[in-house]
Design a protein around this nucleic acid. Sequence first.
DNA 1: CATAACATACCAGTTGGACGGTTTCGTCAA
DNA 2: TTGACGAAACCGTCCAACTGGTATGTTATG
Lengths: 187, 187
Amino acid sequence: MSTAHHRKKQPLFVRQQLLEVAARLASEKGMTAVTLDAVSGASGVSKGGLLHHFPSKNMLLEALFDSLLERLDAAIEEAMRADPLPHGRFTRGYLHACLALRDQPQGTKDWAQVTMVLLSEPQLRQRWREWVRERSEEYVGTDSSVDAAIVRLATDGIWLADLLGSHDMDQSSRQRLIDRLVELTKL
Amino acid sequence: MSTAHHRKKQPLFVRQQLLEVAARLASEKGMTAVTLDAVSGASGVSKGGLLHHFPSKNMLLEALFDSLLERLDAAIEEAMRADPLPHGRFTRGYLHACLALRDQPQGTKDWAQVTMVLLSEPQLRQRWREWVRERSEEYVGTDSSVDAAIVRLATDGIWLADLLGSHDMDQSSRQRLIDRLVELTKL
DNA sequence: CATAACATACCAGTTGGACGGTTTCGTCAA
DNA sequence: TTGACGAAACCGTCCAACTGGTATGTTATG
């Protein structure tokens, strides 16, 4: 009998908001804080409403992870379009996409943290494995050198360091790091 | 009135066993499976006994994380002792220690997975941050080049890839990767 | 009016942890 | 040597809060 019941229906917006709330909870308080009650409570949507959009908790987590992967894919594709050199293009795209996602303020906050938390659930690791396998097969012609692999691994390392808050370095040394990584992709 | 009550007291052994059980649960079924009931049940220790060793669940997780850090420190120190060249020594030690920890069968299984799961808890990230900061200050003289930083980041990437099961590569290409990383530490 | 988009009420199982009990152990006086 | 005794190492039970999920509404929208 609350007023929320009478508000305008906007399924896509509510769904998006639920995902963002789940992401915020995950990054701020860890996986154990992501409960149906907490998500519904913090988003102003009833638990019934939440379970209407996501039939189970696992479905919610999978949807959240998928939305993050889509965002990553889009960022990579955008970076690759601006890159004229074929050799190592995907690796550079991966690098720049990961760097770009970390500081865009809009949308899901703390992209890295959420991803990390989600990857701690064994069920979601399979999805990530498939994602990596598909890409490494697709770009086997241009991005399979040892140095390219190192750059991608280092990118994951940066991603990890960003989310953990370790390795706090100033802007200039960070830029030198990135420049060197880009240089490695072209060898 | 069970027989377990009458067994010989071996506090250190029991404590160690509790940590190992918690680690196994974390790596196999994720953070959500690490409950006091599950740990006590799987280790044959009562919940009371468990809470005697670790006054709270958080204490248990912190103790587990600390034991992993100690293991990492020991492995790094061992690798560094066998390395005559000062320049980049810590970075190589870090690299080899992380590689060594992943396939040693004895002790805590799936070192990487457990670490990952634990790092998904925000409270434990602080501990990791401190660990990194201490090391980077200690070895600022020998391991602060851009390439050394890249190697360490790539090491984290390998660590991540191992635990996620992505990047499955054969032994020879893995060795070439490592060789190249070691080479980078010496530039 | 049919269906999607919500809300409310409720449930059975699980959770972390408090609590009081029992057994072993180290220690130190007799 | 012994044995008393306090502390440490356990055990088993109970509980309030919370968990994911169901069932059944009510409202908006096409």
